[in-house]
Design a protein around this nucleic acid. Structure first.
Lengths: 113, 113
DNA sequence: GCTAAAGTTAACCAAATGGTAAGGTATCCG
DNA sequence: CGGATACCTTACCATTTGGTTAACTTTAGC
């Protein structure tokens, strides 16, 4: 079984827990954008927007690069894979448990018959 | 495309962003447990543990039921599906974008030849 | 019925989060 | 060169989060 460094998974899920940040990721899925462009749809100051981008960058969901007087942001991540994989692994275990419960109930039914 | 009620996804990802809570889910994947049993592996007071369980319950990742003087906790959720689906949808869009970039680079190479 | 176990509630605390305003730096453009 | 644009930094604020201790309630068992 794969080991997930706790702090990385923490950061990834925490970054995804904010709707503004998920919207930013949505936007970046269409292509790179500057901070100003990212800010446009939101009623938010630039420093506020920058904080969100910083969180996404620390979670390695986004990478940024200074270009002249603008900063270009783009998606950059294999972290999503980790998050998806954690969920899948966990879900598989969970379903196995439900299966066992199902088996148990089947046996009970058989025992009563 | 499926709409994800923002607040639900918020709660799900936020609940998953804490390592203690992910451990609790791990434990519950093995079967139901009381609050006291859940607390055991952690160096934490009961009220502290209860807060985590409360967060998981509000995210509908866990359901609890009072039984005599104990409270039994078990996994209970379709919320993980939503989280997984969001990640998958997002990732698909992201990969589509990388494909377009690949196409572009291919065309550039052709144009130079 | 008393006592111990299991949980609950309330009050408190430090640190992190999500936002703001104000002011500074760097760079493009005419 | 000079101004406007785009970003950066700092300081500040309210709220939430993750934890504690202390005191209370309910139930199990002798």
């Amino acid at each position: 079984m794969v080991r997930y460094p706790s702090s990385t998974l923490d950061r990834t899920f925490a970054a995804l827990s904010d709707p503004t940040r998920r919207e930013i990721l949505d936007r970046l899925a269409e292509g790179p954008a500057t901070l100003g462009e990212l800010r446009r749809p939101f009623d938010m100051t630039l420093p506020g927007l920058m904080k969100h981008v910083r969180v996404l960058e620390e979670a390695q969901l986004v990478v940024t690069e200074k270009k002249g007087r603008t900063r270009e942001c783009r998606l950059g991540s294999e972290q999503l894979d980790d998050a998806a994989q954690w969920i899948e692994t966990y879900r598989r275990r969970w379903e196995r448990r439900l299966d066992r419960l199902g088996d148990y109930l089947e046996r009970q039914k058989g025992a009563r018959a």
